[in-house]
C-alpha cells in the first residue's frame, strides 16, 4: 500500500508520523526547523486545544505548540 502524504493539520492524535515536506519560507516552520523538525523527523500529535487550534506536537523529546494555519504547511506520512 503506498503511503499517502498528508498535512499535519489533518492527522489524528497519538499516531506516529514522519515529516516529508516543510515550507521553510514560513517563519513558524523556520523556527521549528532550528529546533530539529526536519524532513524524516518523527513526530506525534499530542494535544489539540479546545477549538482544535492550536495543536501540540512532540518530537525529539520536546513538545511544541503551533497554529493550524502553520501546521498546514507541513506534510507528514504515517508510520505507525
Amino acid at each position: 500500500m503506498p503511503i499517502l502524504p498528508m498535512r499535519l493539520d489533518r492527522i489524528k492524535k497519538d499516531g506516529l508520523f514522519r515529516v516529508t515536506k516543510l515550507d521553510s519560507g514560513n517563519p513558524c516552520i523556520a523556527r521549528l526547523m532550528t529546533m530539529g523538525l526536519l524532513p524524516d523527523q518523527e513526530l506525534r500529535l499530542t494535544h489539540e486545544a479546545p477549538l482544535g487550534d492550536p495543536i501540540a506536537i512532540e518530537f525529539n523529546g520536546c513538545q511544541m505548540s503551533l497554529r493550524i494555519e502553520d501546521a498546514a504547511r507541513i506534510e507528514v506520512e504515517a508510520i505507525g
Binding site: 513558524c28 511544541m64 497554529r67
Partner: peptide
C-alpha cells in the same frame, strides 16, 4: 509580529 510557536515545557 513574531511567529507563534511555543514550547510546552
Amino acid at each position: 509580529s513574531q511567529p507563534f510557536v511555543m514550547e510546552l515545557p
